[in-house]
Amino acid sequence: MALSEPKPRAVRLIFEYEGREVRLVSSEAVDALVPPTDQLDGYDDHLGVWVEVRDADGRPLHRRVLTGPLEETVEVLADDSGPSLRRTRVTGRRGGFAVLVPGFAEADHLSFLSGVGSTARAEGATELARFPLGGGGGS
């Protein structure tokens, strides 16, 4: 009987984005520890953007709030000498970012979600994009 491949400890996915369009550039196994998941429930009214590793039934296995990518503002120093920062709105912002997730055997896909604070309207978060993980996290 053939032995199955051992699952990687982690998978790093590298993305490019322009505005809120996200494209997967690469996915590779990494022998590294992954920072702990953010809370896996109780965020129905949350604002912001996050990624979730989900199983085939859509259950979240790992969640990470994103701060930076996909935002419509960039942060710059506010003036020539002070300790303040400020943000400026930009359109069509482009860049790259990485997401390091655990190599769960149950992992089915990675979802990008945008929360709009909509518990009262029972709408929940909007899925911006979904990328298959192909079992064990890698594709």
């Binding site: 953010d38 990470r64 709030v65 994103l66 701060t67 930076g68 503002t73 942060e75 506010a78 303040s84 920062l85 400020r86 943000r87 400026t88 709105r89």
Partner: peptide, 16 residues
């Protein structure tokens, strides 16, 4: 603080 630890800005304005 933002990119590695998921922290938000605590300042009370966007542009100033």
């Amino acid at each position: 603080g933002h990119s590695a630890f998921g922290l938000a800005d605590e300042y009370e304005y966007l542009q100033g």
